[in-house]
Write a protein that binds this DNA or RNA. Structure first.
Length: 467
RNA sequence: GCCCCCAUCGUCUAGUGGCCUAGGACACCACCCUUUCAAGGUGGCGGCACGGGUUCGAAUCCCGUUGGGGGUGCCA
């Protein structure tokens, strides 16, 4: 016997467009991508376009855009598609006809209500095979059902091992609706066969469909693909992430300033861990090390705190010039980029997401600092604050206006009042930046300049003295 | 109800019979550093769901219990 021809690995990712791209879908896409790349195969994008999705092409564009953001780009040679399920409608019906003619599928004229009544009477859930041997011809209102054989179906799953299903528990499922349109299950298998898909990597919720699809593959005359059902992502209630309750749109994380690299890295650690003591690693290593066989079996909690930690880490890993470049789109266009660039190193260690960047340095660019009343009340109420402000204005007017000198001057003034610099800087900080927290003060003042610093301090003093 | 999947610190995980008085990461706490806040450094808290087996030896294998999740459409 001749050795089997080598098969080119083809992994399909088949999202249904719904107006946003789910983080769980992103992880599944990444799994497919990693395996396709490592095996030297192809990542096939096939959109399960519904009627609604067809009327909203922007949904599909959104998916492609989101995939590109996480590094899965249509420009990459590994990428193939996008294809659309609807464009294979003819093949779906053709396959159904073949199945009917070969006797593995049959027509049934029972309505859904009638099926339900029979189930209730017999006490057995689901369709009972009523029309199996009635020899019905195709006709309006009649559905085509698959004749599930006796025995068991074993689904060999890369992450779960062999999963055995007793066919007695699988009803004769519908292939074609009464109106003649094919069901998703059929369409899916026919498309996979047509595209020579070798690996089906998808969420665990599809596992119960696998035996049905596997039977369909065989009925169509093909060996089923390699299956891999990966666990779902859950919320703190341990429920599958839902659009209503949870923040699941990848686009939203992008808009909130999460870095694609951080998101990708974090997503890959849910259900899988690289060898060694560090989870932070570049995609190139993940791609080389990721194995479906090593994916965990239990659902994983999508932890925003840990994502944030990853994001902060990734921001800090950026070379300074890259960080500055990355900040550009997050800053108002009229802010002086040179000023920001000089402060950037102080910003980089203090932000969690890119949306934190602008508010951290806004006082340098605004005509008036935005005074946070809580901060004001906390630091300005004492007599010490007023006196210190007065002395500092005087000192700052005379000193060489650079960070080191400013620091020395403030330190001296603090000593007069028995306060360390940590306490002494607070009123100045609130007067100039409007808040108790922020980038290093002296450096900020130097950047602001003597005139503006003194003006803000005098304004604060005026307010304190009721002027 | 029925079918299927799952079960290690609060969370994500390492662990595939002896290397485990169970390792790492996030979170949390303490200390150090310090110009606020961060960042960084050091240390700490904290877990094999339960009960039976198998074995010289079990987090690891088997059975049961409990608990969680998913699926049960002429949806995708």
């Amino acid at each position: 016997m001749a050795p089997p021809a080598p098969v080119h690995p083809r992994l399909r990712f088949a999202p249904s467009p719904t107006g946003f791209f789910h983080v769980g879908g992103a992880r599944t896409a990444l799994y497919n991508w990693a395996i396709a790349r490592r095996l030297g195969g192809t990542f096939v994008l096939r959109i399960e376009d519904t009627d609604e999705a067809r009327n909203r092409p922007e949904w599909t564009d959104g998916i492609i855009d989101s995939l590109a953001w996480i590094g899965i780009s249509t420009d990459d040679p590994t990428f193939e598609g996008p294809y659309f399920q609807s464009s294979y409608a003819g093949a779906h019906i053709e396959a159904a006809t073949r199945l009917y003619e070969s006797g593995v599928a049959y027509y049934c004229d029972l309505t859904p209500d009638e099926v339900q009544v029979r189930a209730k009477v017999s006490g057995k859930p689901g369709y009972d095979g009523f029309s199996r041997d009635r020899g019905l011809e195709p006709g309006p209102g009649r559905v085509l059902r698959f004749r599930v054989p006796d025995g068991t179906t074993v689904v060999s799953d890369l992450v779960r091992g062999d999963v055995e299903f007793d066919n007695a528990h699988i009803e004769d499922f519908v292939l074609v609706r009464g109106n003649g349109t094919p069901m998703f299950l059929l369409a899916n298998v026919v498309d996979d066969v047509a595209m020579a898909i070798t690996h089906v990597v998808r969420a665990e919720e599809h596992l119960p469909n696998a035996p049905k699809q596997q039977m369909l593959w065989r009925a169509l005359g093909h060996e089923p693909p390699t299956w891999a059902h990966v666990p779902v992502l859950v919320n703190e209630q341990r429920k599958k992430l839902s659009k209503r309750r949870d923040k699941v749109a990848l686009e939203q994380y992008r808009a909130e300033g999460y870095l694609a690299d951080a998101m990708v890295n974090y997503l890959m650690t849910l259900g899988w861990a690289p060898a060694g003591d560090t989870e932070i690693m570049p995609w190139s290593r993940i791609e080389a090390e990721f194995r479906l066989e090593d994916v965990n079996h239990a659902p994983a909690f999508f932890d925003l705190k840990k994502l944030s930690a990853f994001n902060g880490e990734y921001i800090r890993m950026l070379p300074l010039d890259e960080f500055i470049a990355a900040c550009d789109e997050w800053l108002p266009s009229d802010w002086d980029r040179a000023v920001f660039a000089r402060m950037a190193e102080h910003v980089q260690t203090r932000v969690v997401t890119m949306t934190d960047v602008a508010p951290m340095v806004d006082f340098l660019f605004l005509a008036e600092p935005e005074i946070d009343e809580g901060s004001w009340n906390k630091t300005m109420s004492s007599e010490f604050a007023r006196a210190l402000l007065r002395d500092t204005i005087e000192a700052f007017a005379a000193v060489d206006f650079v960070a080191a000198e400013l620091k020395t001057a403030l330190e001296e003034i603090g000593e007069r009042y028995g306060q360390k610099l940590g306490k002494a800087q607070a009123p100045v900080r609130v007067a100039v930046t409007g808040r108790t927290v922020g980038p290093p003060l002296m450096e900020s003042l130097e950047e602001l300049g003597r005139d503006e610093t003194l003006r803000r301090m005098r304004a604060a003093l005026d307010r304190l003295e009721g002027r």
